[in-house]
Design a protein around this nucleic acid. Sequence first.
DNA 1: TCGGCGACTTGATCAAAATCAAAGGCCGGT
DNA 2: ACCGGCCTTTGATTTTGATCAAGTCGCCGA
Lengths: 245, 245
Amino acid sequence: MQIVNEHRRKDIHNSDIPTVCAACEARHGGVCGTLTPEQLFDLSRHSTRRSIEPGREVIGQGETTDSYANIINGVVKLSKVLADGRQQIVGLQFAPDFMGRPFTRESALTAEAAVDTDICCFPRTVIDRLVSEAPSLEHRLHEQALKELDEARDWMLTLGRKTAQEKVASFLYIIATHIDPEKGTANEFDLPLSRADIADYLGLTIETVSRQITKLRKDNVIRIENSRHVTVPSLDRLMHVAGID
Amino acid sequence: MQIVNEHRRKDIHNSDIPTVCAACEARHGGVCGTLTPEQLFDLSRHSTRRSIEPGREVIGQGETTDSYANIINGVVKLSKVLADGRQQIVGLQFAPDFMGRPFTRESALTAEAAVDTDICCFPRTVIDRLVSEAPSLEHRLHEQALKELDEARDWMLTLGRKTAQEKVASFLYIIATHIDPEKGTANEFDLPLSRADIADYLGLTIETVSRQITKLRKDNVIRIENSRHVTVPSLDRLMHVAGID
DNA sequence: TCGGCGACTTGATCAAAATCAAAGGCCGGT
DNA sequence: ACCGGCCTTTGATTTTGATCAAGTCGCCGA
């Protein structure tokens, strides 16, 4: 795991404070936006940039989390496992999401990079201190929590009540609308998840996922190259198949 | 829907400020605890007590929500429906939970009483004002959101990866541990949900729920009277069947 | 007391997805 | 280029839970 820590380096060479965190800020418009220049400086002095290759675990279920992080680019899987190994992905985080569970040190889930991912880490102690100083930062974290709650509940409807076909279409819709934070919806993209991951996200088996993707392809809802590159000719059509009104 | 508004009445007769909201506070130890006496007085002047009979909708999906509420007693179902009527309960709220979605007026879900339920409502405008004045209130709301997020993600594992048998046992476990906020876990209780509701919570059909309950009864994991009253001889055994380690 | 209705249970059959099994295809390394 | 491994696809069969279809139970009102 490569540690870049470009903030600290930059900070040493000059003290152009407001732009210290600019590399992150420009791309994830996230936590930093709510802070004063002084707080931003404080935060940036302690932040470290990390690159994570796919499959590498960021935080394990039950482990102690010592940091928060902004996702600069890439995709992170949040998952839970049953004692016998059955696994469920309970959330996907895309840039510019903020990762981390405030007010608890024990992680109830595992966070793992799905593709090559860059994150900007902040020590828990620093964020916690800033939160107590700046209500606007807590507000920001609160909104992130509410967003994740809405997404989790939407996904519960998918898990509990949709057919395999609708589940796979719903997954593709999620990816199309989240993979590129710049432009809202992409009609062509690379899947950030393997078939096994998709199965764990949808509560299905690999085989069922594969068969449903094949069916979507044969029905001309999507096109696929190299099993990872997807083209969606009509998002409306995909949404319709996904059961999204 | 009966409107009691005991706070306002009490307020008129005397101004013993810190105990104005005591009827609620004592039982849900919730939002009120974080406020100053002045803020509490402010809030209590606007709060109204409502009794809701089972099946009555509190807030409809897509409707505008004008209030927040504390649940005094009872159980509220939060659900989502697909265009064709398929339904999924995405959360249950027990006393002393706080209900309401901060920072948005559109409700993405339907809230409905599952049994006779009393709630204490606060107008959105008042809570929103207090939140901006008192960071501790936002903190309290933030914690509630994180708790609901954790519960939602736990339930996603149940929906996506557990068998019908494990789902039903998981449901019974949830009820046993939440139905009575006083004592932590009840080994005897009335189910607050009909078989149809349980099915919608578990992503199953009524028939499957019924069969699995029968099986749990035959396996002596639970005893049932009148189809609603449940006795759990051994919580460990129930947890084991539920796949909870 | 007798219907009658709604909620629940039970049984028979069906279908969707899981499981078991065997190829393909792609990629990196030799 | 060839091999080996992993990921993915496809096929055959089984299983789980859904669907269809009767009942049963409890309760309320006539």
